[in-house]
């Protein structure tokens, strides 16, 4: 495919990527925006994602899963318009504070360095409406699998 004039945007590709990932869909996450160096995703609070029934706070695992997906999309935004399969190599998440019960969580992910084989990602999450106080920060690496026809995943 030539890429002189894209008929699709980074946001389109991220949304198609999301559609193809069953667990992320089941979590209920959504993509808010997608630019070369910045992806934003959102995970609405839901009763079945609660980790502590006494407080109603969302489970760290659900937040992790959303951030892991956001990190993958951050790579997608750098390799755009090509789409690649990029498994996570490692991921560290620091939980700075707990989100409130009932609050949606927003994640911003950025691929700040892309090499031939490896992508380096920084991530920050906060409670919707309170961007000044992050609830979690993450640092991750992903590897770029050289698979032909990877674009099929997003309909390319």
């Amino acid at each position: 495919m030539t890429d002189s004039s894209h008929t699709f945007t980074r946001l389109d590709i991220c949304n198609r990527f999301l559609e193809s990932v069953r667990h992320s869909k089941v979590l209920g996450m959504e993509v808010l925006s997608a630019e070369e160096y910045c992806v934003r995703t959102r995970l609405p609070w839901r009763e079945d994602l609660v980790g502590n029934p006494d407080s109603g706070v969302m489970h760290g695992g659900a937040i992790f899963a959303m951030m892991d997906q956001a990190g993958g999309m951050a790579v997608t935004c750098r390799t755009f318009p090509a789409f690649e399969i990029t498994p996570t190599i490692d991921f560290r998440l620091d939980h700075l504070r707990g989100p409130s019960a009932g609050a949606a969580v927003i994640c911003e992910a950025s691929c700040y360095r892309l090499t031939n084989h490896v992508a380096f990602i920084r991530l920050t999450s906060w409670e919707e409406g309170n961007e000044e106080e992050p609830i979690a920060t993450g640092l991750a690496t992903y590897t770029r699998l050289k698979i032909d026809n990877a674009g099929k995943v997003v309909g390319q």
Binding site: S20, V21, R22, H23, H59, G61, A65, M66, Q69, P87
Partner: peptide
């Protein structure tokens, strides 16, 4: 808990959770 359905592989986030 499936991530990539074409492989199919588990979602890394689900395994982490």
């Amino acid at each position: 808990v499936v991530g990539n359905p074409t492989l199919p592989a588990l979602h890394g986030g689900a395994v982490a959770g």
